[in-house]
């Protein structure tokens, strides 16, 4: 890619009851995993609106990871089922948009599976590397130059703010 220092950037949506707790467990267990992930805690994976996933990709993420409770274990009974249904369709639609399959991933990780958090994140980072940067923010800017007076189109749900890069990524 154009930037030799490029590192995959993953936005993760973890549910409060299972996967986020598992990520906490990974932390207190001193498990080391790739620092390429930014975790957003939600009460349930069922809260992940497909708009969030698209907004993350359009706003600069190279991949999106969703973590929820195992099927049957959802704190809200069926929230993760709703996520699974939406996710299956979103995958089909993202293929039509030309977004590679590996960029969006759904995993069931229970509160006790700290080690799975580590392995899933590490694996996803390695799968994103060969795909290269998605860099949609730059891409939209590039495409916008085509019209003389191009209006900035807000890609995210609110106004996209410039992210301050964390030193280690």
């Amino acid at each position: 890619m154009h930037d030799a220092n490029w590192e995959p950037r993953i936005v993760a949506f973890f549910c409060n009851w299972c996967t986020y707790t598992a990520a906490d467990l990974a932390g207190v267990s001193r498990l080391k995993y790739a620092p390429n992930v930014r975790i957003v805690r939600l009460m349930c994976s069922g809260r992940v609106d497909p708009q969030f996933i698209l907004a993350a990709l359009a706003g600069g993420a190279d991949g999106v990871l969703i973590g929820g409770c195992h099927i049957g274990d959802c704190h809200y009974v069926e929230g993760n089922l709703k996520t699974l249904r939406r996710f299956q369709m979103l995958k089909r639609m993202l293929a039509e948009f030309g977004i590679e399959d590996q960029r969006v991933r759904l995993e069931w990780i229970s509160a006790s599976e700290g080690d799975k958090v580590r392995s899933v994140i590490n694996e996803m980072v390695e799968q994103l590397r060969p795909l290269g940067a998605l860099a949609l923010r730059e891409q939209f800017k590039e495409w916008g130059r085509e019209v003389a007076d191009g209006q900035p189109v807000s890609v995210a749900l609110g106004e996209a703010k410039q992210e301050t890069e964390v030193a280690h990524v």
Partner: peptide, 16 residues
């Protein structure tokens, strides 16, 4: 008007 606006495949990006 959608968030992704258009086909964003690597081929489409390379064309730009």
């Amino acid at each position: 008007h959608s968030i992704l606006q258009r086909n964003v495949s690597q081929a489409a990006r390379a064309e730009t």
